[in-house]
Simulated scan of single mutants.
Amino acid sequence: MTTATTVRAYHQARFRGDLPTAAAQLGPGFTFRSPLVTSDSPTGHLDGLDGLLSIVTDVEMISELYGEDEATLVYDVHTASPVGTQRTAEHFRLTDGRITSILLIFDASPWHAIMAAAGLGGRQG
């Protein structure tokens, strides 16, 4: 599989809520970093995805950049929440055709009040 095939499969599965397919794209030694969640578990970063997906109304791809063993996606996540639309960049590293790290970049400040009201803090999983 190519980098584009693997990353697209992960991205689409994640936003469909298809956790087994998303997790199947992840390789050994996987790490995930975002402003709100840090995980060294291939599935730990997907925990709680149902909560996010319950407020996502659309995902609009802006740009996809692919290299041999890395990719960057830039997209807008439209939500039915006070956050509204969240501009997001996501950088992937791959080893042997599987995703070994994801760095998710976005302005987390609008999410802090929502997470505090829900009794949630940043997660490590």
Rank of each mutant, 00 (worst) to 15 (best):
G51C: 10
D47M: 03
L52A: 06
G51A: 15
G51L: 14
D58Y: 06
H91W: 06
D58P: 04
D50Q: 12
G48E: 10
A71I: 09
T72G: 04
F92E: 02
L53D: 04
L65N: 14
H45N: 08
D50W: 06
V77W: 06
H91K: 13
G44V: 05
E90K: 01
T79M: 00
L46F: 00
D47A: 12
D50P: 02
E90I: 00
A80E: 11
D58L: 06
G84P: 02
R87Q: 15
P82Y: 06
D50V: 05
M61F: 01
D58I: 03
L65P: 04
T72A: 10
T79G: 00
T95E: 15
L73F: 15
D40M: 12
A89L: 15
L73Y: 15
I55V: 15
E90H: 01
R87F: 13
T38C: 11
D69I: 07
L94M: 11
Q86W: 05
H78T: 03
S54Y: 05
D47Y: 04
L52W: 02
H91M: 11
E64Y: 04
D76Y: 12
V83E: 08
G48F: 09
Y75G: 01
G67P: 03
T57K: 08
I62F: 06
P42G: 08
S54H: 06
H78V: 07
A80M: 13
L94Y: 06
T79L: 00
T43W: 03
S54R: 12
V77N: 12
D58F: 02
Y66C: 02
T88H: 07
L52S: 01
A89M: 15
E60H: 11
P42F: 01
D69F: 12
G84E: 03
D50H: 10
D50Y: 02
D40V: 12
Q86F: 09
D76S: 12
D50F: 04
L65W: 10
T43M: 02
E70M: 05
S41F: 11
M61R: 03
D58N: 12
D40Y: 07
D96N: 14
D50M: 03
R93N: 04
T72L: 07
P42L: 04
E90W: 00
G51N: 13
T79H: 00
A80C: 11
D69Q: 13
T57M: 06
V59S: 04
V56G: 05
D69R: 13
L53Y: 08
L49D: 13
S41Q: 09
S63C: 01
T38S: 14
T88N: 11
S39P: 01
E60Q: 14
